[in-house]
Design a binder for these strands. Structure first.
Lengths: 342, 342
DNA sequence: GAGACGGTTGGAAGCGCTTCCAAGGCGGTA
DNA sequence: TACCGCCTTGGAAGCGCTTCCAACCGTCTC
């Protein structure tokens, strides 16, 4: 910077002010400094800048999964607005319990960021305390962390949209494939989505048959296994409500292999509207994923700007009817008669 | 740090050395310092540390897409080894031409990182020059940037595995759905995968019919459109080779909607082994994606450690035969007679 | 037993920038 | 015309850490 100042014929103090867009710098002077900087292709050292009292210009993003579409999309939306605001994104993957321990105990992001965004994962009380230690703004997105400003979908409402659709189609024997994250102990299967199942059934006056509820780790093959289990029932369901599209797709595979037709024999509905749901003609409940990331990013910006955010944002979901659901045709017993489970 | 030094009864110089694992610090002293730091839950200020001459402890990762499985998986593998090495990951999404311009012109990562990893995208000559300006180590992964130490799969070999499989099954009229990235002008459809098509055909003595080659932007719906185009041909292909699984899945949808059976009427093969390929029973050529990220991470570590890396690494691919490919049964003409294209 | 040597430690000089404080200039007002 | 006050600028003190250099001390060797 000394070079720039010299070249512009000003002191370092002025150069600094000009470069960081401070008021009280004569326009002509500012221009001269900027020109000099440009000429020398100079950029301020963020370290020095920060050290001398600024902010880091970075925000940490903590995610439980990177390669899953949902999380990656959230991240994509978030990164876009943060990058627009000239903030750098520091990515922290907290996969299993061990990662979690390391992250929250060592707090590697400490002193490195101005804010942290927690994507799609709950934060336990002790972890919250550690986070508080960082003394930065915190925003949550895609999960149900109501202790912080958050943006998320309404799991209960989404679940209801899926379930009510099935019930509307005449199904009464509806299976549910719930997912839990094996890497995150104590992290319950999305509670809202499960509650939706029970409430929808209750509202329709349909008794709950516990055998129709299967909880598996997240993933397609797990969904396939769950479906196989449901098909093994004496009276298999005529419709299946899966907590997510990937799981639903797994169920679809099992059904196909068992020689069952979708939706004639069994209807399947998922949640999320994964891009491949469209390709596989899966009925689902769409949530604006990327947008949730975007909104979270805006919250961070607002917070960093000194703003206050008192409450969270809940984004709307929408039932997308495709080819995997249809009216109940044959009884479960008939299905069982026509093909052996896979 | 002054506090820590005082509490440990040593000078700041010694405290610094102990904290940063320098040699020439008595074990007892080091222990005392560490204990003090622990007690005060102190962490060094990365800014100050860097400013005083260290490194940034950060590496930038540049990706053209975040939410696509391939890139996200690469990123996941990379992040894991970098995090293990206590390096922070700065994520830069360079989506379209504009982002690209901004990134390479402004070089926002300048002075912020010790190394940059370019994931799955080519780097043009002028960009290479800008990158050189950063004066940091550069590694490429998942692409074909041979100007830097790189890790990638062998597109040509993978394409051959897919094509040879089709040819072995007796197909002679094979369509190819190639993908180009609309956001990245001048970025050719994966050249190796395209070349594989031509070479395989040549080796089998099958003449190329240009009408069987369709190039579309990446994505499932684009794949569906491409397939529709192929079905519209007077003599449609009996097998289709898609440059990626997502595209292949799109083709599958079109075929299904057209009432064609897979693989009886048309065989489909993709590349990548996307997790959903297994669920949808798609024959494909698997590449170890996450591992490529891991390897790239190790390269970064080696480079940062002062090592030299003279050449790139090419990971093996493997044909995974599932239910979407089968022997040629009926002639293309017959197919056309049995169902109208979707 | 004395000198040499290597492991330890402290002092102090920056790393490159921001910002407080004060000084200099100018136009405007009484 | 003299004084006041605001805009603009420069000087200089750190921000929190690393590391060179020198001093120190115990041990080993001749």
């Amino acid at each position: 910077m000394a070079d720039v100042a010299r070249r512009a014929g000003v002191s370092m103090a002025t150069a600094s002010r000009a470069l960081s867009d401070h008021p009280h710098v004569a326009p002509a002077t500012r221009a001269r400094v900027l020109a000099a900087a440009e000429h020398l292709s100079y950029v301020v050292s963020p370290e020095a800048s920060r050290l001398a009292g600024g902010t880091t210009g970075r925000v940490a993003v903590v995610v439980p999964h990177i390669s899953r579409w949902f999380f990656a999309s959230l991240l994509e939306g978030l990164e876009a607005v943060l990058r627009d605001a000239d903030l750098d994104v520091l990515l922290y993957h907290v996969g299993d319990a061990e990662d979690r321990g390391v992250f929250f105990q060592r707090l590697p992001a400490r002193r490195k960021v101005d804010a942290v965004v927690v994507l799609g994962m709950p934060v336990a009380e002790p972890e919250r305390q550690r986070l508080a230690l960082m003394g930065v703004h915190i925003v949550a997105a895609g999960g149900q962390v109501e202790d912080y400003p958050y943006v998320s979908m309404d799991d209960l409402a989404a679940g209801r949209q899926a379930m009510d659709h099935l019930i509307y189609l005449g199904h009464r024997r509806i299976g549910m494939i719930a997912t839990a994250d094996p890497g995150q102990p104590g992290w319950p299967a999305l509670p809202g989505r499960t509650r939706a199942y029970h409430e929808a059934l209750a509202d329709a006056g349909i008794p709950v048959d516990e055998r129709l509820i299967v909880e598996v780790p997240w993933g397609g093959t797990a969904g396939a296994d769950a479906m196989a289990q449901l098909l093994g029932l004496r009276e298999p369901p005529t419709a299946v409500y899966a907590h997510s599209d990937e799981v639903a797709l797994g169920a679809v595979r099992t059904l196909r292999r068992a020689g069952l037709r979708i939706p004639q024999d069994v209807s399947v509905v998922g949640i999320d509207d994964h891009p491949l749901a469209e390709l596989t003609d899966l009925t689902t409940v769409a949530q604006p994923v990327r947008e949730q990331g975007t909104l979270a990013g805006r919250m961070v910006l607002a917070l960093l700007d000194g703003g206050e955010i008192s409450e969270g944002v809940t984004v709307p979901t929408r039932l997308v009817i495709r080819g995997s659901t249809g009216p109940r045709r044959r009884s479960a017993r008939q299905i069982r008669g026509s093909a052996a489970p896979g």
